[in-house]
Design a binder for these strands. Structure first.
Length: 322
DNA sequence: TCGTGTCAAGATCTT
DNA sequence: AAGATCTTGACACGA
């Protein structure tokens, strides 16, 4: 039984390699004319796409095959001010190059629209903005040539709006109304305040959509019940998917700031978790959501290389012995 | 060059 | 009803 490790968006170990450089709307407006504004957007986008490819090459060298793209690849992409700008067409070669590299080297790529993207909002405007944001993510996947649905977008359920039942219903309704090219990309995740792992699981089972469990969030709102059973059902939602189930993992910053993410993964915390998963006997991937990004991954990987009943295949992949 | 307040975006808690 | 807070990496401005 094997698992792989992945990390989010940026590397600590490459110089000047941000994939999410941007411009604030304010300073964008202050630029003298349309030409200067477009120039700025293009320059940033080009740099971000180049840096994404650099990061992927680095990941490949480090045997890290699980990676989350930043959602900020294209500055102000979904802002009303840039709506006429066809960045997909302009950068089609760059997007394609990234997608080719992903496919050639067998990466598991994902993305995570941020928490402003909510499809259960009661506000028409928020819904519109959210759809535009989902569309933006999907368009990039498609431009990369990653157009089968195995490359996913992770989302939360959204707000509670003082009425959980109605809010869940609204989520399901708008989920089912989404076009295939968006809906079939979606993976749903439990959050740390509103929708517990069990809440999300029930939604996922009904909608026949895979679920990612965030272990840290699950500790923030634990809906009770047997963890192995819960996990087994969650892994079951991946049955018809190309990739194995994935979980998100991070360690709390401290007991006081429990919800905040720490810089590094606590290795004991991690091996405790592994003990709970290994009864399932199924391969899976783990996305590490910590501040120190790939440094934390490599650090954890090193620590795990001494752990009993684990064998390190390479930096990003382990075998668990029962 | 460095430190700090601010940033496109929503929801929810606090006042 | 308005304002603060959450969270995040990076911008932007002023010292």
């Amino acid at each position: 039984m094997r698992f792989r490790l992945g990390y989010v968006a940026m590397t600590m170990n490459l110089e000047d390699c941000s994939p999410s450089s941007t411009v604030t709307f304010n300073s964008y407006c202050k630029l003298p004319d349309e030409e200067a504004r477009l120039y700025r957007l293009r320059k940033l986008t080009k740099k971000n796409l180049e840096n994404t490819l650099r990061i992927l090459r680095y990941n490949n060298a480090m045997n890290i095959k699980v990676y989350r793209l930043t959602s900020k690849l294209v500055p102000l992409a979904t802002h009303p001010a840039t709506q006429g700008w066809d960045y997909i067409c302009e950068f089609k070669d760059e997007f394609k190059r990234i997608g080719d590299y992903v496919k050639e080297n067998g990466f598991r790529i994902s993305a995570h629209p941020d928490h402003y993207t909510l499809i259960n909002s009661s506000s028409e405007k928020v819904m519109e903005d959210s759809l535009r944001d989902l569309e933006y993510h999907v368009k990039m996947y498609e431009a990369m040539g990653l157009d089968d649905y195995k490359y996913k977008l992770v989302m939360h359920i959204g707000g509670m709006y003082k009425d959980k039942q109605t809010s869940v219903k609204r989520f399901k309704d708008s989920f089912e109304k989404l076009p295939d090219r968006i809906r079939k990309r979606l993976v749903l995740e439990n959050d740390d305040k509103s929708y517990s792992a069990l809440d999300v699981l029930e939604i996922c089972e009904e909608l026949k959509t895979p679920m990612v469990i965030d272990i840290h969030h699950h500790k923030c709102i634990n809906s009770g019940g047997n963890f192995a059973d819960l996990l087994s059902r969650i892994f079951g939602t991946w049955e018809n998917e190309y990739f194995n189930p994935k979980v998100h993992f991070s360690s709390p910053k401290s007991d006081k700031e429990f919800r905040s993410h720490s810089d590094y993964i606590d290795v004991n915390d991690f091996t405790n978790f592994l003990d709970n998963v290994k009864v399932l006997g199924k391969d899976f991937d783990i996305m590490l959501e910590v501040k120190a990004k790939d440094s934390a991954l490599l650090h954890l990987s090193k620590e795990l290389s001494n752990a009993p009943s684990l064998k390190r295949i390479n930096e990003g992949e382990f075998e668990i012995f029962m």
